[in-house]
Amino acid sequence: MAREKISTSDSTLIPHRGEKEIFSAWKISFFGAIGLIIFLVIYSPDPYARILLFLPDGVLRTFQVTVFAILLALVIGLIGGLGRISRIRIINKIATVYVEVVRGIPLLVQIFYIYYALGRLVRIPDIASAIIAMAVCYGAYMAEIIRAGIQAVPPGQMEAALALGLSRRQAMQHIILPQTVKIILPPIGNEFIALLKDSSLVSILAVSDLLRRGREFAAHTFQYFETLTIVALVYLILTLLFSWLVGLMEARLNRNVR
C-alpha cells in the first residue's frame, strides 16, 4: 500500500531501522558525549565536577517543561488536526487560521508575548506560561502532522468502514486513527526532540531550566566556556536518549505488520 511520506523540516538522529553497525552515527554521538563528560570531570574536576553538580535541578525543570508541553501540544494537535479535516467549514477555517498564524510567528516572540503581553492581563505563573507558549506553538505543527497522517490513510479504508455501517466518528476512532498513529510516529518523534531543544528558549523567562542554570553558574564564576560545554553535552545526551526512545516505539509498532 503506497503511503504518502510525511516530510519533516527538523531532521534528527533517530536511529535507522537496521542500522546495526557498532559505529552508528547515533552511538558515536551518544557515547562520545558521555565519554567526553567523564573525561573532563576526571581530568579537571575543579570546574567540571562542580558544574555537573549544579545542573541537575535544571535538567529536571527542562524535562518538566518538555513533557507537559508535549502532552498539551498533542491534545491541541489532535483537536487542530481533526479540525483541519473537518467538513464543517467554520471549524475548518478556525483550525487553519490557528495553524497559519502560530506557524508564522517565531516561538521566541510567542513566549515573550504570552509571558509579558498577556501577563499584564492575567497573571500566569512562569512555568505555566512557558509550557502554554511551547504547547500552542508545537500544537500547530502537530496539527499539520496529524492532518497529513490522517490523509495518508488510503481513502478505501474510510469507504470500507462506512460500507460496513460504521458512522464517520466510529470509523475515525476504530479504523483511521489507529493507522494514523503508525504513520505519524516518526515525524511526531522529531517534533518531541525539537521541542526538547527549543525548551531552552524558556530560560529567558524566570524558568531555571538547564540553560539558565548554566548561565547562573557562569555568571558567578565567569567560566563560560566550561559551563556551556557541559550544558551543550547534557542537551545532546538528552536529545539522543529521546531519539532512541522514539526509535524503540517505532520498532514496536512495526512489529505486527510487515
Binding site: 500500500m1 488510503p154 478505501g156 479504508q157 469507504e159 470500507a160 468502514a161 460500507a163 460496513l164 479504523i175 489507529p178 493507522q179 503508525k182 505486527n256 505488520v257
Partner: peptide, 12 residues
C-alpha cells in the same frame, strides 16, 4: 454488504 476490488482490509 460490500466487497471492494482492492479488498480494503484494515491493516492494523
Amino acid at each position: 454488504g460490500m466487497v471492494f476490488q482492492s479488498f480494503n482490509l484494515f491493516p492494523h
